[in-house]
Design a protein around this nucleic acid. Sequence first.
DNA 1: GATGAATGAGCCTTCATTCAT
DNA 2: CATGAATGAAGGCTCATTCAT
Lengths: 213, 213, 213, 213
Amino acid sequence: MKRVNKTEFSDGLAEPDTRARILEAALAEFARHGFAGARVDHIAQLAGINKAMIYYHFASKDKLYESAIEEYVAGFIGELSGKVSSGEGIEGILESMADTYRRVLGSDPYARQILLRELAYPRGKILSRIASVIRDSGVPATLAAILREGAKVEKFRPIDVRQAQASFVLMNIGYFLMAPIINEVLALEDIGNFVNERRSAVIDLFLNGVRAR
Amino acid sequence: MKRVNKTEFSDGLAEPDTRARILEAALAEFARHGFAGARVDHIAQLAGINKAMIYYHFASKDKLYESAIEEYVAGFIGELSGKVSSGEGIEGILESMADTYRRVLGSDPYARQILLRELAYPRGKILSRIASVIRDSGVPATLAAILREGAKVEKFRPIDVRQAQASFVLMNIGYFLMAPIINEVLALEDIGNFVNERRSAVIDLFLNGVRAR
Amino acid sequence: MKRVNKTEFSDGLAEPDTRARILEAALAEFARHGFAGARVDHIAQLAGINKAMIYYHFASKDKLYESAIEEYVAGFIGELSGKVSSGEGIEGILESMADTYRRVLGSDPYARQILLRELAYPRGKILSRIASVIRDSGVPATLAAILREGAKVEKFRPIDVRQAQASFVLMNIGYFLMAPIINEVLALEDIGNFVNERRSAVIDLFLNGVRAR
Amino acid sequence: MKRVNKTEFSDGLAEPDTRARILEAALAEFARHGFAGARVDHIAQLAGINKAMIYYHFASKDKLYESAIEEYVAGFIGELSGKVSSGEGIEGILESMADTYRRVLGSDPYARQILLRELAYPRGKILSRIASVIRDSGVPATLAAILREGAKVEKFRPIDVRQAQASFVLMNIGYFLMAPIINEVLALEDIGNFVNERRSAVIDLFLNGVRAR
DNA sequence: GATGAATGAGCCTTCATTCAT
DNA sequence: CATGAATGAAGGCTCATTCAT
């Protein structure tokens, strides 16, 4: 907040400021071990600072968790918002959504863990925060609008739009959450392929599912 | 396993044997607090026995966790297998699957927590065990067979069967896992209704999605 | 409370039970270093037990302090009560009081420290407890009665009995509390002598102070 | 000592210099919480300065304590000395002593705490310092002289002067130290009254106690 | 089987003290 | 003089695990 990089004119190898380093280390530790399993000692080691510094910058392990997750979630705001322009048509928006989910949950090292952890043992208002970020991105509303407009002109079948929204999201996100089980149940040997093809398979199923006959 | 009822000659009002009580208490505690957050003391208290008894029956907290989850997962074997007869047609099998997922994840007090926990922080081979139970139930294979047969006679479109399997499962299971976020993003006010209508909405989307045009 | 000596029939060298050992060690540590200065680790060492045992028997450092002091103060109940029979006359009761004060504050290793500590930084209701023990001993009431009776028959001057009570107590107790300063101000070289003679000096001053002329 | 007013050329509204502010804050903190219970952080906060400043002016918490108490005790030197002129007679000197004790221990916010604390857990040579201040005031010597002179002319009984000195001091000071217990044992309801009347009650008892018959 | 007591290692947090600026 | 940041060494408390009975 009122923090300034402490080595502005120095050797160029300026180490990131302590508070940020702590938050990053905390995120990694919490993602890997959950809240109860995370060790403050370990976070300090990861951040390369003295353990007491954590309590200098944050009041407690609890507050540190909140701060780390909050900052992490806030980081996605820019990424998600404005990704969709209704002009692209339904294929465009579905592709955009699928891409975003994949990028966030398939590449980001912490998103999946944090999300699962919070779903299992909610702490504070983090789930609400995540929901806000998604809703405020405008994507769900845009998809809903398209489905409703399409139903009027009989391009789409008159279905429950909310159920459809949920279904599309879950087909996409759900895979990343449940991959270990899905992959084993389906006895997948070419997981990379499966993931790559999933985007179009999901969109195909969805579009055929909602399109009027 | 090797346990004997402890009140063989007693009054007939035999209380459940200790080992079982421990396992039940452990499941509840682990589901509620995760592995690291669970307290052996608390489990003993829940089971109404002395803490040392836990170590008499189980080698460690780790082993206790494994035993509790293993026994819990094993309990679903009978429930899932034989639920599907391919004679019921595709609607029948989809309904049967949707019902089962809902019963397990929507009513059972521990399933959702344990599943999320294991997905986030896998311990031992529990995820594999879950996958085995699902696969051994024969349901996925039956669904795959129906989709393939249907594709041959052009009843269904020629799609990737594995992707379709995954999609159907995720639309169903995914909701229970992610309900807190889904509900808030969609600003649901009638959650009960939404859940009740979800089964047919999902089946409807899926069938239209795979059916030939 | 519900504690039984654990080595009833053993070698006769039965070690005192743990709880009592902890209380004794705690008293010593608290008396020597005060509450904030006392170290739980040190108490455990003094008691010859593992630090965790302290928390097995007592909830916290706070509670341990309360328990230790409470038990300590309670130990004086028997010692103080019934020490005075009004039949002994005023000299008798004054001597008895002076002796008791001297025994408690001059010989007991902890009384002075605990009393000073509590007077400076009261914790819980310990000062009240001490007051109760003194009052319940009946001694102050007996002294007051004697002074009042004596005033009626003009054996004593008509003075404020409460002030007199306070004065007598303070001349006795006060010395033990303030000895380091008193001794130095008076440049005493024969402290032992001074203490020995104090009893009769105080009683002499007091009796002449209250006696009618 | 070697300090200079920090705002020599400033607006004239010079704030008290830092060193003095630290000493004042330290005295308050030490009086309230004792040495071990006092927090350097808290002292800095009370003084409205940065914690490091404390270590710039004082070497350690120990030295800070000594300095604060030393300065505090030194402040009483002027107050106590020269208060007594033997010309006032014994009543005069006793009244003067009682008044001084009451003013210091009954009104000063720290004296009682500091005195009790030092008596319980002496630190450095502070008790000696206090004794010196008292002795150097000349009051005890004056009282002793009066009692000895009076004994020669048989105005006073031939008592142990040192015991009498101690007794008078303790009747006065002792009450302030032990008030919480005294008040409760005597079940005082009019404490203010009791304190007000104490001076004359003590002097009355003492004079009658030493006066020849 | 069952229990109360005991333990060692570790955990979160605090605190006096120091350093760089 | 003055500050914010940093640190090492505890300090109180907890927890999985074991022991004696």
